[in-house]
Every structure is written in C-alpha cells, then in structure tokens.
Design a protein around this nucleic acid. Structure first.
Length: 583
RNA sequence: GAUCGUGUAGCUCAGUUGGAUAGAGCAUCAGCUUGCGGAGCUGAGGGUCGCAGGUUCGAUUCCUACCACGAUCACCA
C-alpha cells in the first residue's frame, strides 16, 4: 500500500492550487501539511492549511477552508471534509476505505512509491575496535544501525552495510607490546577478545607506573605504519582471531554486514589524501610539522597528520568517504556513531567537501545517538570494569527465562531455553530502539527486562495471542505452513466499532514507517507497534473471533488478525526482532 | 571559557516539526476471568512541559538570556 498522508497532502495541494490561483506551488507547499489529530474523534487525519492561509491572505480560516473544500478532488476513501475551529479540515475515512484497506492489508504489508532515488544508502555502524570484546554500550550503534538498514531495505532502497572495524591505531602498539611481554598465544586462541582486553588493561595499568611504555607502544605502531613485516604479521593474526569472537556476537544479535572493512584498508588512500590536499593547498602545515585543515572561523583545526608523520583516524575517515563515493555513488552515507564524536564528523565532512570527495547531492550524515548509562557503575575499558555485551545478553536471557516460568509459559521445558534467549535479546534490542536515539538511555535491569507496558514481550505476547486464534480457526492440520498469508476472500463487513478502530489504526501504520525513515528514528516504529498492540488487546477483550455470531463476522475478524500479524511481523522485523508463534 | 545535546506526572518515556482538553507504562488505589492465551483489559488520582522574557490569533514546540546535567574542544579512536 501507499503512505496515505503523502497522497492526502497531494490532494490538498491540488485543491489549494485551484482555490488560490494567486499563490504559487512553492508558496503553498509548506503551508499545506497533513497531521494526525490528537483527539481521534476529530477524524483520522487533519489539515491545518486554513489556519496558515488565513494568516498569509488575511482572510478568515473558515472562508479559506470552504474554498479548499469546493475544489477538493472527490475520493471514495474520504467520508467527509469538515471544517473545525480554529481552522482545521478534518478528514474521516469512509467505510469503503476501511473495508478495502482491510482486505488489502490481510494479504500482506508493504509500502510503495516513496523511494524515488535509486542510488544506494551506505550505512556505517557497529564499527568497534578489533582486539577488544564488545562492551554493553556497543549494542547502541550495532542495533540502531542494523534497524535503519532494515528500514531502508523495507522501502526498497539498496543498502550497503559496513562495519568499519577499528583495526589500526596506537592501541595496537600497546597490545603488541603487552602480547610480547605478558601474552600467551594459546590463551588468545581459546578466547581471543577476553585475552586481548586483559592485555590492554594490564598495559594501561603498567603505563601509569612507567610512562616510558607509552613511547614504546608508539614506536611499535610507527613500525607498523612503516611496513615492518614481523610486526604486521602479528597485527594481522590479532585482528583475525578477534574477528572470530566478534562474529559470534553478530550471529547472536542477528546482525549481518555486507563488508567488514578495517581502517587499515584505507591506509594508502589516507596518504594520498594528504598529498592531494597539500598539493592543492587545501591542507596546511601546523604546529610541530603536523598537517592540518583550517576550519572556518576560530574553530579548532582538523589534524590530518601527526608531527611524526603518522596518519590519524580522521585522515583514514576522509579517505573512506572518497572510496565509498567512488565505489557506490550513494545518495547518503550514514554514520551511526556516538554523539561524543560530533566534532570528528563535522571535521571529517568539512575536509571531504573541501577536497571535493563528496558531491553536494551525496548526503553525509552523522546519525548520532546518546550515551548508555548504567545505574551503578560507569563504563570504561581502561578501568577494566566494562560490562561485556555477551554477559549482558546472558543476563537478559536468564531473566526472561525465569520471568516466563513465573508467568506460566505454554512451552515445554526444552523449548524454554531457546525462547528465553530470543526474548532476552529482543528485550534489550527493543529497550534501545523504543527510545529516541538522541537521548541518553539509562540502563536498569528492572526497567529493561520488564515484561509489561512498552516492551518486546508485550508485543510478542500480543502476536502470539493472535497467532493462537488463527491456528485454532484454521485447524491443527493446516497450521504447518503459514496460514496467515493469504488475502481474505470476499469483502469484509464491520459490525463492531472495535473492528473499525483496529483497521483505522492499521491504515495509519505506514505513516509511522515513513516518518521513521525520513528522520532515521526506529523508535517511531516501536511506538506505533505498541499502539497497534494496545488497540489489538482492546479488540481482543471486546470482540470474540472464533465464536462470532455469523460466518461473515468471523471472516472479517480473522482478516483483522491476519493484517495485524503482518504489520507486527514486518515492524518487528525492521527492529531486528523475530516473532514467536508461542511463548 | 567555547560549541553541541538533554530537561515533560514520584520513576522510565512519547508528544505528529507552531495548533484542538499535553499522552502511555511502572508505582498507588478501585474494578474485569463458567470466556479465542490475565505477560491482558477498564477506570481514578497524579503536570508551573527547568526558570524568565520575546515573537502572534495561538508556544511543551520558534528566538534571546539564565539554571542544571552530560559530551566535546590538534598529535587517541
């Protein structure tokens, strides 16, 4: 189906153009907006254009509204266009729209006609450091990025999912030093990232006592940059071992990448970027022989080469932009990275634009998110008290399992473990994705694994309830395949207000998906899914399905269940959460 | 000090980009199962939308100043 508000807006614009020929399309477009009224008995949609036109034209809002009504195109989906003070045009869906909408939705859920740009979207997410285990806070970039990529996929955009692995930099000098001094290769092979992390932490502790170690590590890193073979072989082995561990977590999270390309891939290109910039006098020499890009005004200049000649994170990132633009010609490159790096990306984008590596019509976006704060301890790898992502997932699964047992799950014991893992991971994902990414998230076990209210289990439970009815309606024999996939036969007929309420809610679901896409904010989908489930549970309590009075009512209600399940399934799928048939 | 972000019910959060009576969950209190899965549903109480001005028909939303918290501010990534 299509996003109705997009169509409605076009209709209002068409009417406004006819009604007010003295105004141009570019003047009218920003005035004609479509919104959802707060109070549902005003209608399903509303247009506040009369208010804005009244201001611009110094004409009464009601007069403006009447002129729009007069030239509004006839559409069977709209019951009546009503003026309401102080200056709204309220739109109510017609019964026919509800019936036809339900019939269509019961056959499946998809959205068309919103993706005009066929160029791919590059999404850079997760992008953790090699040779460290993933900390709990790495869940943010990994899950938000994955979800956004899923969302673009859903809208038919080609996506390029990249994990820009941190496999280069001074910290490898530290780890290599520590590995040579205190390391054990066999321990590494058993559990790579735990051992690398232990070594790194040990180095940092020793470094505080003996500051000269910092210089040692820097020398080792410099020898890597200079191409010292033995050191590079060791470095390569470290990253390969580390990736084995990381892949296990990605699998557990259900996250996949098209490319896991480390920073080291861009080393030569980074050197060329600096040469190119110097040649064209866009980059300059700074203090101590470092290479800088002067930012406008008195902002801190961007540093592209250290005084010792080594490239930096920023240099490699500029080269990365150049490479990605040349390789994919994307419509946008999204960086799903902690907001703490805002300055870095501002500099990164400024340098790339100045050097002409990214054309104007390729958007460079820092899709930033807030911090994850733990209720008790602050997280820092250096201090060694970081909470491991794996441990967090374990804890979530354990809690979900005991919660399910306490609630009296339907599942046999042997399936409980499997389900607890799914619900645990889903709960954490949902906790992250249901909140506006701009805001800091407070991590508290009791809040995250709550199985009530706006949570993954609530949504999963709602789905399982619907599924249960569906299975009974179709008979045990047919439940093997996917019985909820076919479109209902015949036109639905509504007999209860709760049925219409459900369909209205479902017809508006695409709006949320579209808005989430535009704003790159998965929480908008989460909120919509939650509201959908609330509406469903209300419906469930009021309207019997299996024991419905006549066959027509039963067919309509089963159609509502089908449509509901399709939407929940695809919405949760975008959030990276699988549905459960039973729980 | 500068820049960016956040501040909404006791707690955790939404709030349709300037609109109609600011909404959910948790917690508290009161109800709903001979019933398709009670991990559910219904209702009540609970608000100076950080503070003070400004812009206009109208501000939680935009502007300015201030307060609080957090992040960042060239040789880490």
């Amino acid at each position: 189906m299509k996003v109705f508000s997009t169509e409605l807006k076009a209709m209002f614009l068409e009417a406004a153009l006819k009604a007010f020929p003295e105004l141009s399309e570019s003047e009218l477009t920003p005035l004609v907006t479509v919104e959802e009224p707060r109070d549902s008995h005003h209608g399903e949609m509303a247009c506040a254009a009369p208010l804005r036109l009244a201001k611009k034209l110094k004409l009464g809002p009601e007069k403006c509204a009447q002129k729009i009504i007069k030239s509004f195109p006839h559409d069977y989906r709209i019951n009546a266009l009503e003026f309401a003070a102080p200056g709204y045009l309220n739109v109510k869906f017609s019964e026919e729209f509800l019936r036809e909408g339900l019939k269509s939705l019961s056959g499946g859920f998809s959205i068309e006609g919103e993706n005009a740009d066929t160029r791919p979207i590059v999404i850079d997410y997760s992008s953790t450091n090699a040779a460290k285990h993933m900390g709990a806070h790495h869940i943010l970039t990994t899950i938000i990025g994955d979800s956004l990529a899923n969302l673009f996929d859903f809208f038919g955009c080609e996506t390029v999912r990249i994990n820009h692995l941190g496999d280069w930099g001074t910290q490898f000098g530290k780890i290599i030093y520590a590995l040579r001094e205190w390391g054990d290769m066999k321990e590494v092979e058993k559990h790579p990232n735990d051992e690398f992390t232990r070594l790194y932490v040990k180095f940092c502790n020793e470094e505080e006592k003996k500051p000269e170690l910092t210089e040692e590590a820097r020398k080792i890193f410099k020898s890597m940059e200079d191409g010292h073979e033995e050191t590079l072989a060791l470095w390569k082995w470290i990253t390969e071992e580390s990736l084995k561990d990381l892949n296990k977590i990605f699998k557990r999270l259900g996250v996949e990448f098209d490319y896991i390309t480390g920073e080291s891939f861009y080393l030569k290109m980074a050197e060329e970027v600096v040469k190119d910039g110097l040649k064209r006098k866009i980059l300059k020499k700074g203090e101590g022989g470092a290479i800088i890009f002067p930012m406008k005004g008195d902002e801190t200049p961007a540093l592209l080469k250290k005084s010792d000649g080594a490239t930096l994170y920023l240099t490699r990132d500029v080269a990365t932009i150049k490479y990605r633009v040349e390789t994919w010609h994307p419509a946008a490159i999204l960086y799903v990275v902690d907001r703490a790096q805002a300055l870095h990306f501002m500099q990164n984008f400024a340098v790339a634009r100045a050097l002409g590596y990214a054309p104007e019509d390729t958007a460079l976006e820092h899709t930033a998110f807030g911090r994850m704060n733990f209720a008790d301890s602050a997280m820092s790898t250096r201090k060694g008290n970081v909470i491991k992502l794996n441990d967090m997932l374990d804890e979530a699964a354990t809690r979900a399992g005991s919660m399910a047992a306490g609630k009296g799950t339907e599942l046999p014991r042997e399936e409980l473990y499997k389900m607890a893992e799914i619900i645990g991971v889903a709960s954490i994902k949902y906790a992250v994705l249901s909140q506006d990414r701009n805001k800091d998230i407070i991590f508290d076990w009791d809040k995250i694994i709550t199985l009530e209210g706006n949570s993954a289990p609530y949504l999963l439970y709602s789905y399982a309830r619907a599924k249960s009815i569906m299975n009974k309606a179709l008979g045990a024999g047919k439940s093997a395949g996917d019985p909820a996939s076919g479109m209902m036969s015949g036109m639905p007929e509504f007999s209860e207000e709760a049925e219409r309420a459900m369909v209205r809610k479902m017809l508006k679901f695409p709006e949320a998906m579209h808005k989430a896409l535009i704003e790159r904010k998965p929480h908008i989908i989460a909120t919509a899914l939650y509201e959908l489930c609330q509406e469903f549970n209300r419906f469930y309590g009021v309207v019997p399905v299996l024991t419905a009075g006549d066959e027509s009512a039963k067919r309509t209600r089963l159609g509502i269940l089908q449509a509901f399940m399709h939407q929940i399934k695809s919405g949760l799928n975008i959030l990276g959460i699988p549905v459960l048939e039973r729980m």
